[in-house]
């Protein structure tokens, strides 16, 4: 564990609390992509099957359980109690393409041919693009509530810190994970545009609106 990875994981945790806070405070999930949230649930379930096969640390296991449980809970909130506030008409990104694409990539370039490694690779590829329905929805509506922007920013910052974690681990441990690196780099690049708009608008206290 290093400072980049620890802060990244904590930002990932924070992003989930920000999202839950937004839904609870505004009593609405307007502007939140159910597709992105459902994709994250699929990502966590398919990646963390090693909960049953490997024990790394209490921290690692607790975080995995939290990510699975919280993503299931968010999908439930959007699907049931907050369904009337869900902006389905703007959440129109074709998420099935992302799942099929990630599945094909997972089969073409798996970490190994063990079923858990294929699912792990699939989840890595899927996580890289899972934010796209959310970014697409924000582009369609042209703006987002500030708190939703904070959520996406925390997620993007978590990914950016993972890049620094990998550079650090490469030099200190010789750690290499090409699949995670490439997918992680792609994932971070997807946030580039968003970062710029966030920093120039939200940080100056203005509404998050796209040009």
């Amino acid at each position: 564990m290093n400072i980049f990875r620890l802060v990244a994981d904590l930002l990932h945790l924070a992003s989930i609390f920000i999202l839950l806070l937004k839904i609870q405070q505004t009593k609405s999930c307007a502007g939140v992509s159910l597709k992105t949230q459902a994709l994250y649930f699929v990502v966590f379930v398919t990646r963390y099957l090693d909960l049953f096969t490997h024990f790394y640390s209490v921290y690692n296991s607790l975080m995995k359980l939290f990510f699975i449980a919280s993503s299931a809970y968010i999908v439930y909130l959007m699907w049931k109690p907050y369904r009337p506030t869900y902006s389905a008409s703007t959440d129109t990104f074709r998420a099935e393409f992302l799942i099929v694409g990630a599945a094909l990539l997972g089969l073409a370039f798996p970490d190994s041919w063990h079923i858990l490694d294929i699912l792990w690779s699939f989840s890595i590829y899927l996580e890289a693009v899972a934010i796209l329905p959310q970014l697409f929805q924000m582009t369609r509506t042209g703006e987002a509530e500030t708190i939703t922007s904070h959520y996406v920013f925390a997620l993007g910052a978590y990914r950016a810190l993972y890049l620094m974690n990998w550079i650090y681990r490469y030099y200190t441990e010789g750690y290499m994970d090409v699949i995670a690196w490439v997918a992680g780099a792609v994932q971070t690049i997807l946030y580039a545009d968003f970062f710029y708009i966030y920093l120039t608008r939200v940080m100056r206290g203005r509404l998050f609106s796209l040009p």
């Binding site: 990875r5 090693d50 096969t53 490997h54 790394y56 690692n60 990510f67 993972y162 994970d177």
Partner: peptide, 10 residues
């Protein structure tokens, strides 16, 4: 094969 022990990241 088994799951690579390097998959220690979240």
């Amino acid at each position: 094969s088994t799951v690579s022990p390097t998959h220690d990241e979240l």
